[in-house]
């Protein structure tokens, strides 16, 4: 059900493009208006998300400590897993965001009889890292279509990515790895009983959408050729805010750019916000220095707690305190008189 709905949604998009560009010839709508609108939704949507999160305070410093705290001088503390200051937090976050540290810890549990076996399981980490890094490199690589002159590092990246000179045009390694990553992530949702049980249509949809995006891009590059100069004329026109639609670009390009637009527009309203959300996560982005540096909770600062004070308590148990020989605090009465 969930899988079908997501798949139908993605196939529907292809039909929309076929109808809009192939039949109705709405080149400007699909080549300029929709991409611009999607980009705006993406940027403004994510900013709105971040501002919305930031509107709520982080009332407590609830770092998840995954390593030794900094305490006694002769005990080595874990700088990356239990950061003691902001610099170490940056290191921890870098490791988390760039290398998926927490996923790397992943274990798999198996129950045989009444014995539990826990073993390291890095597959999810591998699939995730393949997918995310490939996506990033592909995205950066695409900047050659959005910039002129093209910055050197993008050209270098391009050359490195096609290093093996397989086929013509040269096969990009990231095209292979992103397909591998996506396939793994999709199969995992379909095959692993636990993950299958928790998966929603909104989990399959981005997978299919990105898969469609990658496949349409690869088709365009390797099989159904389009004129790259015309494509760049369009994309560079978008980037330089002088949009124009050159004639004669194949339908496949419009499918590709429509997928991108849909992904960008869907981004801020879906689980994909984890891209920026991970930076906001209080269990990871705060140092474990709770007893050394005070964290302020805005809605409790200056609001004194109500509780049973010692003097009230002493009144309650005065006889028992006296009988059992525990001292009575005379200050309680002094304060009352004064």
């Amino acid at each position: 059900m969930n899988v079908a709905a997501a798949l139908i949604a993605v196939i529907g998009m292809v039909l929309v493009v076929w109808l809009g560009v192939g039949v109705l010839k709405l080149y400007t709508l699909f080549g300029v208006v929709i991409p611009y609108a999607a980009f705006l939704i993406f940027v403004l949507g994510l900013i709105w998300r971040m501002v919305n999160w930031a509107k709520s305070p982080v009332p407590f410093k609830i770092t998840t400590t995954c390593g030794q705290q900094k305490s006694l001088s002769w005990i080595k503390h874990s700088r990356l897993e239990s950061p003691a200051n902001n610099f170490e937090v940056v290191l921890r976050m870098a490791l988390e965001v760039l290398a998926f540290r927490s996923l790397f810890r992943n274990l798999r549990a198996d129950l045989r009889g009444r014995r539990l076996y826990l073993g390291s399981s890095k597959w999810l980490w591998l699939g995730a890292i393949l997918f995310h890094w490939s996506f990033l490199i592909i995205l950066v690589r695409h900047m050659r279509l959005f910039s002129y002159p093209v910055p050197g590092f993008i050209q270098t990246l391009n050359a490195v990515d096609s290093f093996f000179h397989i086929g013509l045009p040269h096969l990009y390694l990231t095209d292979v790895t992103i397909l591998a990553g996506l396939t793994f992530l999709l199969l995992r949702r379909l095959v692993d009983a636990k993950v299958n049980y928790i998966s929603l249509a909104s989990d399959y949809f981005p997978l299919f959408l990105i898969l469609g995006l990658v496949i349409s891009g690869m088709l365009m590059r390797y099989f159904l050729r389009v004129d790259i100069a015309s494509v760049k004329e369009l994309t560079l026109g978008l980037a330089t805010l002088h949009p124009k639609v050159p004639k004669g670009i194949g339908l496949i390009f419009y499918v590709h750019i429509f997928f991108v637009s849909m992904l960008a527009a869907y981004f801020p309203f879906s689980k994909l916000v984890h891209m920026v959300g991970v930076f906001f996560s209080p269990t990871r982005n705060l140092p474990n220095d709770n007893r050394r540096v005070r964290h302020i909770n805005p809605w409790w600062e200056g609001v004194p707690p109500k509780f049973l004070t010692y003097c009230e308590w002493q009144e309650k148990f005065k006889d028992k305190l006296i009988d059992s020989g525990q001292p009575i605090d005379e200050d309680c009465y002094k304060e009352k008189k004064s």
């Binding site: 305070p57 999810l124 998966s199």
Partner: peptide, 20 residues
Amino acid sequence: RFRTFKLFMDICVRCGACAD
């Protein structure tokens, strides 16, 4: 009052790393 609450409700991708 709790950014954690907002954030944790928004960013889960149901990857299932926590499942077992």
